[in-house]
Structure formats: C-alpha cells, structure tokens
Amino acid sequence: MVTMTHDGAVRQRLGSGLVCAVVSASSFGLSGPLARGLMNAGWSSASVVAVRVLVAAAVLVPIAALQLRGDWDLLRRNASLIIGYGLVAVAGTQLAYFNAVAHMQVGVALLIEYTAPIAVVGWLWVRHQQRPGAITVAGALLGITGLALVIDLRSGAATSWIGIAWALVAMIGAAAYFILSAQGDGTLPGTVLAAGGLLIGGIALLAAGAIGIVALHATANPVVFQDFTISWWLPVLVLGTVTAAVAYVSGIAATRLLGSRLASFTALLEVLAALAFAWALLGEAPHAIQLLGGALILIGVLVVRRGEHTDA
C-alpha cells in the first residue's frame, strides 16, 4: 500500500513537472521570433534581452514582495543563490550566447549551448553521485541527435575558436540555470528567485552596455512579421511577461518538481517551439530533416522521463 501511494505521488509530481516544463519551453521558444522582429526593426540584441528581463522583473517583483510577507531575512539567507542566478543563469548566459553568435553561425552556437543537459548529468554524477541509468543515457542520446537535426547544420559552416569558447560559456550558464533553479532552503518561492535573478541580470546587462561590452540601442519603428505589422511596445510586452516572467517561473517550478536532469532534457522542447513560432511569425518553414529531429527529441524526452521514473 505504501509502495502504491509512493508510486502515485511520483507520477503526480512528474506529471505536474512536465506540464510546467512544457509551458516554460514554449514560452522561451517564442522569444527568438519576437526578438528577431525587434532586431529587424533596428534594436540591438543586447537591448532586446535587457528590456525583456527588466520588464519581467517589473511584473514579478510586486508578486514576490507579497509572497515574502515581510520576511526580508529570507532574501538574506538566499542572497548568494539569487545573485548567482541573476549573474550566471540570466545575464551571463545571454551575454555569452550573443558573443558566440558574433563569431560563428547561430545554429552551431545553439548546438553547443543546448548540450547543457550533458553537463547537468555530469555535474550531478560527479558532485552528488547521481549516476544516470541506461534508459536515461539512451534518451539523452536520442534527444541530442534530434537537436542536431532540428538545428539543421550545414556542412562547412564557418566557426572560430573564440566563438566556440563563448558558446561553451553559454552552455555552462544554461546548465547552471537548471542546477540553480532546483536549489533553495525549501522556503524560497520560485517567483522570488525568478524576480530577484531577473532584476539583477537586467541591471548587469545595463552595466555591460554602459561600459561597452555590448551595444545598447533601440528604435520606435514598427515591427514587421510575416503577415502583419505591430507597434514596437507589443512584442516588448510579450517578451517580458510571457517569454521571461512566465518562462522563468514555470521553469523553476519544473526543475524543482522534476530535478535538474529531467528538466534540462525536457527543455529541448524549446527548440521545437522556436521552430514552430518562427514558421508562424517569420515564415521560416522547417525542413523535413528538422521534423525528423523534432520527433527524436520528443522520443528522447519520453525515454528520459521513463528513466527518471524508474530511478525514483
């Protein structure tokens, strides 16, 4: 009876976690096409990121303040986690990725960054002796193979050692996102972690722009998508509320329910979401090989989920 109850609790936790993970991946996936529209209208990539995280912080900070209920000591006890989350998981990852793109193809940079689940598995194995089972490893290989097909790398793509180095830094930052999202003393709400991290990350990006590490410039030009044109403020609003506020909060919830390992592999669905949104908003239809890759990612995530349930 106890075993059956425990099994039911595990299934419920995994189910809730997967729902949060899908919401997070879908929200994150929308950010790319919206950001592309703003950049085509004259925005710099760093400006898009900075506005995105600061709008999200403005949305979440009041909610986080209510959740704290005046317990400011909770922030003090988790200050290192919140600061690390903001500087590494938010600002650091974004800066590293855009610097990588400046030296190499976007697809190659994405492929390197999205090997983060392997880094998560390695970290949990070395640091916490959480050795992955054979089923988890098989699902991981399927997911990474599918990711390579979805990105659809072209032969002879130009790259550089500087770009590779920056992409590896972005990969470490993405891995840190999943590891840090699962941390906390059990009393820190996910919204508080997300709000604090986004606020610190946004300020860090503004500081990076002020000293010339990244270029910050924006325009009020209309934003043109495939079949419609809208004012600049609407994609900015959606970027902040949906692709950052909702994405980070649901991502933290997913990681705390699923664990860093399964959550990091489920996040590969973000690539599929980005592909679908790019098709709808930018007219970038996926190739057949990308559809095959998408199927492999889905199968890989299901296999990893099975492996994590068996371990649990």
Rank of each mutant, 00 (worst) to 15 (best):
V224L: 00
V224G: 01
F225V: 03
Q226E: 08
Q226T: 02
Q226D: 07
F228Q: 10
F228S: 09
F228K: 06
F228H: 06
T229K: 05
I230Y: 09
I230F: 06
S231G: 13
S231F: 12
S231V: 15
W232Y: 06
W232P: 05
W232Q: 12
W232D: 07
W233D: 08
W233H: 00
L234R: 13
L234E: 14
L234Q: 15
L234I: 04
L234V: 06
P235F: 10
P235M: 05
P235S: 13
V236H: 05
L237K: 12
V238T: 15
V238I: 15
L239V: 01
L239I: 11
G240T: 02
G240N: 12
T241W: 04
T241F: 12
T241K: 01
V242K: 00
T243K: 01
A244P: 02
A244G: 06
A245C: 11
V246R: 00
A247D: 02
A247P: 08
Y248V: 11
Y248C: 13
Y248D: 10
Y248N: 11
V249I: 07
V249Y: 08
S250G: 03
S250L: 03
G251S: 08
G251K: 05
G251C: 13
G251H: 06
I252S: 04
I252H: 02
A254H: 11
A254G: 14
T255G: 04
T255L: 09
R256E: 04
R256S: 05
R256A: 02
R256F: 02
L257P: 07
L258W: 02
L258Y: 05
G259M: 12
G259P: 03
G259I: 09
G259W: 15
S260P: 09
R261F: 10
R261S: 02
R261Q: 15
L262A: 14
L262K: 05
L262Y: 08
A263C: 07
S264D: 01
S264T: 00
S264C: 09
S264I: 08
S264H: 09
F265G: 02
F265M: 08
T266I: 03
T266V: 11
A267P: 09
L268E: 13
L268G: 00
L268S: 08
L268H: 10
L268N: 11
L268W: 04
L269H: 03
V271M: 02
V271S: 07
L272W: 06
L272M: 11
A273E: 04
A273H: 07
